[in-house]
């Protein structure tokens, strides 16, 4: 596990602590290179790309946008709820969210 954490500390974006999951989604769904993905997410979040991995900025942004935060706060979007809001925010398709939508649109 040490190696995984060392990579995260040395060069990682920080997952849902910051905006790592959001940038990863743009690489995954649009094949965006890192700078393009960072710029895209930053624009959508209305922050600068360098703030994407700043937990001080991102904690507040994630809470305000209600897209899931790292600590367990009652009432905040969790799991698929957060992903549904992320899909909308980033204007991307998330298969599990679409599946849920299909289930409830009866």
């Amino acid at each position: 596990m040490g190696m995984l954490i060392a990579h995260g500390v040395a060069a990682g974006m920080g997952g849902i602590r910051t905006a790592g999951d959001l940038v990863a989604r743009m690489q995954m769904t649009r094949k965006m290179r890192i700078n393009e993905a960072r710029a895209y997410v930053a624009t959508k979040l209305k922050i600068s790309p360098s703030d994407l991995s700043d937990v001080y900025v991102m904690r507040e942004v994630r809470e305000e946008l209600d897209i899931g935060i790292i600590t367990s706060v009652p009432g905040c979007a969790k799991g698929i709820e957060a992903k549904a809001r992320i899909a909308q925010l980033l204007d991307i398709e998330i298969a599990s969210v679409n599946r849920l939508k299909n289930k409830i649109n009866f």
Partner: peptide
């Protein structure tokens, strides 16, 4: 002992 990238240069880490 530990070095790191500069602020804002971080990349996606997958497992």
């Amino acid at each position: 002992r530990v070095v790191s990238v500069a602020h804002g240069e971080e990349v996606v880490v997958t497992h």
